[in-house]
Each structure stands twice: as structure tokens, then as C-alpha cells.
């Protein structure tokens, strides 16, 4: 069990908790919170997929350059930065996902505000117009 699978497991657990909230809660605000928890789980999974055991953040600073040089001396050849850092692409993509998740959460909350204004209720069972 390394950190990558650990992050994956945690993410799956968060998604399950979030879905439980989405499916069983009656309060609209709690449903929005459930959505946020699912969202967070997905982000953790995305970052976890990009993780490689024993590597460091994809920032090419002085410390990383020293490690590259040290690794190069050990191997007796020129080492490559790519063998020391984790995958930067999922980290960049998760940034997009976080922003979109924030946008959706804000929209959901705005709908909740409007609904509450109409019926003075946060209980989802008082909105049955589309139920069949």
C-alpha cells in the first residue's frame, strides 16, 4: 500500500460518503454539501493518480537540481529531471476541476436561495412539482 493507492482509497471513501449525503439527506443545503464532498473525493483521486512513489513536487527549484545532480553522480550518467518528479498534468487538471466545482456549488446555492424564497422551506420533500 503506497500513498497513491491510499489517496485513491480515501477519494473513493469520500465519494461514497458524498453520495450517501446526496441520496438520503432531505435538507437542500446538506445535499449541496454532499455534492461538495463528492467533488473533493474526485480531486483527491485525480491527484493520487499522478503520484509516483518516492518522488517530489514538479517544481524545478535549487533543491531539485541538487537531487538531480546527486542522482546523476550515483548513476554515473546524466540523470533526468523526469525521474524525480511526480506527474504535473493531473495537478494542472485538478485546478480546472476545483474551479468548476466551485462554480457549480455557487450555482446550486443560488438555486437553494431562490427556492427558499418561494416556499420558505429547505426540505426537498416540499418541492414535488416534478415528481411522478
Amino acid at each position: 500500500m503506497n500513498f497513491g493507492s491510499l489517496a485513491l482509497g480515501l477519494g473513493f471513501l469520500l465519494i461514497l460518503i458524498g453520495f450517501w449525503g446526496l441520496l438520503t439527506q432531505k435538507n437542500l443545503i446538506k445535499i449541496v454539501i454532499g455534492f461538495s464532498v463528492v467533488d473533493t473525493g474526485v480531486h483527491i483521486i485525480m491527484v493520487g493518480i499522478g503520484y509516483l512513489q518516492g518522488r517530489t513536487a514538479p517544481i524545478l527549484d535549487a533543491a531539485l537540481m541538487q537531487r538531480t545532480a546527486a542522482a546523476g553522480n550515483q548513476a554515473g550518467a546524466s540523470a533526468d529531471v523526469g525521474s524525480l518528479i511526480v506527474d504535473p498534468v493531473p495537478q494542472a487538471l485538478v485546478l480546472t476541476a476545483i474551479v468548476i466545482g466551485l462554480g457549480i456549488t455557487a450555482l446550486l446555492l443560488a438555486y437553494v436561495v431562490r427556492l427558499h424564497e418561494q416556499r420558505q422551506s429547505l426540505d426537498i420533500s416540499s418541492y414535488e412539482d416534478l415528481k411522478w
Partner: peptide, 11 residues
């Protein structure tokens, strides 16, 4: 799930 050992081509 198998943790990758190397970066993929894009990365």
C-alpha cells in the same frame, strides 16, 4: 490499480 513507475509520455 497499479501505481505507475515512470512518467507517461506527455508528462
Amino acid at each position: 490499480y497499479e501505481t505507475p513507475e515512470e512518467l507517461n509520455l506527455t508528462a
